[in-house]
Amino acid sequence: MGAATAFTIRAARPEEFPAVVALTDLAFATGPYGHLPVSAERRALVDAVAERAADGAVLVAVEHEPDADLVRDLDVAGDANHGRADAAARRLREPIRGRLLGTVSLVRADSAQSRLATGEEAELRLLGVAPEARGRGIGEALALAAQEEALTWGAPAVVLDTGTLNFTSQRLYERLGYERFTSAGAAQEPETDAAASEDRIDHIDYRLPLRDRDDLVIRLVRDDELEAVAALSLRAYEYAYELSEGYRASIVGVAPRAREHQVWVAADRATGELLGSVATPRRGSTISPLAQPGELDFRLLAVDPPARGRGIGEALTRLAIELARLRGLDRVVMNSGEQMTGAHRLYGRLGFSRLSEREHDIVEGDRRIRLYAFTIDVPHATRSIAA
């Protein structure tokens, strides 16, 4: 397999769960703790793929071979870690739709799979990359995809732990902005290899905050909120603009939009009141004809009129920029009608510029409206929704 082979990150499918177990076993067996016996507790954790998928998310990095059943044949080096790596490799030879190159799970605080998370935090667990696929950025891409998944939940932070001897993982998480913290029962002194055992691997605990504001929660819309978001969005646009029937129908079409794309809401953290909304595409797709490869587009940014002045539109726009960064995209683009001057001021304040070469006119009834286009480059440094 060449180093340039592309991969896609998506949710694991049920028929891939055995391969996820095998890949996780292999990643552990070829890591810094691979010489240790596997405890019953870890065996149960690794095997519970269906439970992790039901309560949270199990993501996989899949090689771009969507049309072929591939039989995996790994060349496991060394002494095969007492045969466990060989056993994991044999399990990975089962035919699957596209070769699995890596996997990661995200679980909630109330899950049996969680060790650190409290409250509404999300916990990243069991990040593993196939040995022959290491060095291609797959682990980083999986960690960023898990961070995006946590954003969809409205989680205030992602927490995780990694062994004190797992220096590769420590460098990855710290490069992504995770900070060490001391949790209840955390080890205070680093272990030595001689003292380690699978039952008492000492860990370093990490936390990555996802919220910049204590008063606001941004997450995906829930099914029972679809009508409320449609009403909120219509109020927002009717407040300042004269709407055609076609545009009105598009604004209130929240349910079909949520099925095909992502509809986000900003809610007051104290009361739960919905304050604003925006729509973005799912990973690997677009939401309008405007976007080109390497770009993320968004539509229908709306703030309920009583909530204006609270920075809701800015927070939702920054979310779109953060999603583009997490997906490794280069730019964010969007269209805006020439009459939407308030939105134009917001975009200018955030650093967007006009994309004049992609602007065009649309006709609504007897009116001709210029459809402006805006763009901003996506920063690829350590995450910061507020930066």
Score class of each variant (00 low, 15 high):
205 D>G: 00
63 E>G: 01
330 D>T: 02
235 R>E: 14
121 E>S: 08
209 P>T: 06
59 L>I: 08
349 R>I: 01
168 T>R: 15
232 L>C: 07
79 D>R: 14
4 A>S: 15
342 G>R: 14
62 V>N: 06
3 A>S: 14
89 A>G: 09
105 S>D: 06
326 L>S: 08
140 E>D: 08
247 Y>F: 15
218 I>K: 04
80 A>K: 13
148 E>T: 07
237 Y>A: 04
195 A>Q: 14
246 G>M: 06
134 R>T: 15
26 L>S: 10
327 R>C: 02
112 A>N: 11
293 P>D: 07
100 L>H: 09
48 A>P: 02
82 H>E: 14
368 R>C: 10
382 T>V: 15
369 I>R: 11
31 G>Q: 10
112 A>F: 02
12 A>H: 01
195 A>R: 12
52 R>Y: 03
144 L>Y: 00
228 A>F: 03
366 D>V: 09
111 S>N: 08
146 A>H: 03
269 R>T: 11
297 D>S: 13
110 D>N: 09
178 Y>K: 01
99 R>N: 08
215 D>S: 07
33 Y>P: 04
255 A>N: 03
162 T>F: 06
384 S>E: 13
237 Y>E: 01
60 V>E: 03
358 R>V: 02
276 G>D: 04
171 R>K: 14
63 E>N: 00
227 E>N: 09
153 W>K: 08
79 D>K: 11
15 E>M: 10
377 D>V: 07
214 D>F: 01
117 A>F: 06
28 F>M: 13
67 D>Y: 13
47 D>Y: 03
332 V>F: 09
273 E>H: 10
123 E>M: 09
321 I>Y: 00
97 R>F: 05
177 G>Q: 11
142 L>H: 00
146 A>N: 00
266 A>Y: 04
358 R>K: 14
26 L>G: 09
237 Y>C: 03
181 F>K: 04
104 V>Q: 07
65 E>S: 14
178 Y>P: 01
61 A>E: 02
132 E>G: 07
14 P>S: 11
25 D>L: 12
329 L>R: 05
143 A>D: 06
92 L>Q: 09
203 H>A: 15
279 A>L: 12
239 Y>P: 02
341 T>R: 15
342 G>W: 05
322 E>Y: 01
206 Y>N: 00
304 D>T: 03
111 S>D: 04
224 D>K: 07
3 A>M: 13
339 Q>K: 12
355 L>T: 02
157 A>E: 09
195 A>M: 08
268 D>V: 05
364 E>A: 12
94 E>N: 11
79 D>W: 12
41 E>I: 10
199 D>L: 12
324 A>L: 11
48 A>K: 07
37 P>H: 11
325 R>L: 06
233 S>L: 01
218 I>A: 06
66 P>I: 06
87 A>L: 12
74 L>W: 13
348 G>W: 03
45 L>Q: 15
287 I>S: 05
86 D>R: 14
37 P>R: 13
283 R>W: 08
313 G>Q: 01
29 A>V: 06
139 G>Q: 02
242 E>A: 13
150 A>R: 05
382 T>E: 14
350 L>R: 01
92 L>T: 10
263 V>I: 11
251 I>A: 05
310 R>N: 09
20 V>N: 04
289 P>S: 07
332 V>N: 01
1 M>P: 10
325 R>Q: 14
251 I>W: 04
324 A>R: 12
251 I>T: 07
286 T>A: 14
